[in-house]
Design a protein around this nucleic acid. Structure first.
Lengths: 164, 164
DNA sequence: GAAAGATTGTTGTTGACGACAACAATTGTC
DNA sequence: GACAATTGTTGTCGTCAACAACAATCTTTC
């Protein structure tokens, strides 16, 4: 049905090996239009690009921002706790923290209660930097609002609240 | 305000270098809860994992599925057209098609009207395989529906329709 | 209290993916 | 016919998820 319709409209395009030049608009997505994952993926790419662009001057990427924010709101957390909360692998978090620690935004303090783990803290510079990052991130969020609409953004947040 | 509140509640956690073990639930996300990008990212990871798992037996990943679907619905397209339509880079599409062509699902036919380009077609096996992939993808989509609810999924698709 | 098992941080590898740059072959334009 | 643009290709780089293995350090169990 859907497949048949798509197939029929496609016939006029090329039955053999001719690649007619076509406007991207008239290329049907067929089954993809019914897949939430496809739309979400495209949207997520758009969001990431805007985030990276908006926070380009301070050189902070989404993942780094999420790590800084969680540490800032919960100082003293272990790497394991941060990784679990954000759904990041602990192996991956190691490199993220290496980078953030080199930039003097985060400190790994040896925990005295558990000598395996590190207690994560923002440095004073990290705190002021994070404040700036949050302002830029809010600006990015306004771009999202402009893109999909104020109400739609709120609906989206409600729908996906369980995943945070 | 939000920061102050988070900071205050965080104080009880660790003022120095003690990494108390904490349930992931009680770790505040602070500013992240207001960011659509964070929720979308987490959701998208969940979707991808379910897709990969559901189509695990046939060894098809989301990007491959999208390429096959578009070619199936628009036979004869050039690589450039497919890449543009799906937001994939043409350099990346080369490898995707190499893989799909090796698996005898897709054929690159030399175009006679433009000897630079290839007209992309599904092989007969590709057609029957895609039919199966679509059934599995529909099953995956039902998982999404179970996860966020029927109405929410439809709302989501409407909200993000412009990105497809 | 010692042995066995689990956890934490770390290092390394693999593969998918987006972004960019360069190139040859071909087409389009002036 | 010279010059610019397009198409497919190759290659590199950096981000990211997923594993596996390891040493150091708890925790459990006997």
């Amino acid at each position: 049905m859907t497949a048949t319709a798509a197939r029929t409209s496609a016939r006029k395009r090329a039955g053999n090996g001719a690649a007619r030049s076509i406007d991207a608009d008239e290329i049907g997505l067929d089954a993809l239009v019914g897949h939430a994952g496809y739309a979400v993926r495209r949207f997520q790419i758009w969001i990431f690009q805007d985030f990276v662009k908006t926070l380009g001057n301070v050189d902070i990427r989404p993942t780094q921002y999420s790590v800084l924010t969680v540490i800032g709101a919960n100082p003293g957390l272990s790497q394991m706790a941060v990784a679990k909360r954000l759904g990041i692998e602990r192996a991956r978090l190691v490199h993220l923290l290496d980078s953030l620690e080199q930039r003097k935004l985060v400190r790994r303090v040896k925990s005295k209660t558990d000598r395996r783990s590190h207690a994560l803290h923002l440095t004073p510079q990290g705190e002021t930097a994070l404040a700036k990052f949050k302002r830029l991130a809010a600006e990015h969020e306004r771009h999202v609002e402009e893109k999909i609409g104020k109400e739609n953004r709120e609906r989206l947040l409600r729908i996906l609240a369980d995943f945070t």
